[in-house]
């Protein structure tokens, strides 16, 4: 059974003319990694807010882990979802790293002994244990996002939603946090829903949903989608470096392979092609 099941979901902001999310239907299976990509204003963040019940849908239904999302069940549903937001500063509630990780548990009435244990576990998982007494002002953006992730992990959700969680980080911080998420996903059998602009983040997914004007316009695997090349920009993704290079090589008459190559495999292909020449 699908862990997230959304059907005919529609939401319109009070002041706007068109719905931000328009008749959207999709399922996510437990243990999957699904990326939702699209332009700014395509409705992807609205969708995330609908999923955790920050916004209430105009019509349509959301079922999370078998529970229908309603006003009465919203707190139960939030127990099963952890969410990491875009701005590292604006989700850091605690005064220190350890306090922030404990925040979600304090809300769930977890006893202090358990909290102390789980704060340590969660911080060790994301490699931030040495920073437990640091204040947020003395952390980098990437470190703050890792703390946010630890805060989510400490309450052991089934689903992790990343709402452009890497978009304010530098490339290093970005790949760092993506690797951490990959490891955690495997270890804890998480379902990941990542809302993103970033091609590297989208590339981690099993499946990519492209959203435009509040509607899903395409669903594909990363490989299939990245073969579109420059069309990706139109879909709201940054074209990966390897795709750009492949296209430029093709323009110069080099016989490049037609399927998508990531940077590593493109490099492999390049040095092998030199050998056979």
């Amino acid at each position: 059974m699908a862990i997230i099941s959304v059907s005919n979901l529609t939401y319109q902001y009070a002041q706007s003319e068109a719905p931000a999310v328009n008749d959207v239907t999709f399922d996510v299976e437990a243990g999957d990694w699904v990326a939702i990509v699209g332009h700014n204003g395509s409705g992807k963040s609205t969708l995330a807010k609908l999923l955790i019940g920050i916004l209430a849908a105009d019509s349509g239904t959301i079922d999370i882990a078998g529970t229908r999302l309603t006003e009465a069940s919203v707190w139960d549903v939030r127990e099963t979802i952890g969410m990491v937001f875009q701005n590292p500063d604006n989700q850091f509630v605690g005064a220190t790293v350890a306090d922030d990780v404990a925040f979600g548990m304090e809300n769930r009435h977890v006893s202090r002994d358990v909290m102390i244990r789980r704060v340590k576990e969660a911080l060790l998982q994301v490699g931030m244990w040495e920073f437990r007494d640091r204040e947020p002002a003395r952390l980098s953006g990437g470190q703050k996002q890792r703390v946010a992730l630890a805060g989510v992990m400490a309450v052991a959700p089934k689903i992790l939603i990343l709402d452009e969680a890497t978009s304010m980080l530098d490339p290093e911080g970005r790949s760092d946090i993506l690797n951490t998420i990959k490891t955690l996903k495997q270890k804890l059998n998480l379902t990941v829903l990542s809302i993103t602009h970033d091609i590297d983040e989208a590339a981690q997914a099993d499946r990519i949903l492209v959203i435009d004007d509040g509607r899903f316009i395409e669903e594909a695997t990363p490989q299939a989608l990245f073969e579109h090349g420059s069309d990706l920009i139109a879909m709201g993704l940054d074209v990966p470096f390897s795709a750009k290079l492949t296209e430029l090589l093709a323009q110069r008459g080099v016989a490049v392979p037609a399927h998508y190559l990531d940077e590593g495999s493109l490099a492999d292909w390049l040095w092998k092609s030199r050998l056979t020449k």
Binding site: K49, I52, I54, W75, R78, E79, I81, M83, F85, N90, Q91, V93, F103, G104, N107, R108, G151, V152, V155
Partner: peptide, 8 residues
Amino acid sequence: IAMEARGY
């Protein structure tokens, strides 16, 4: 929003 999402 972040606080609410974390169950506050």
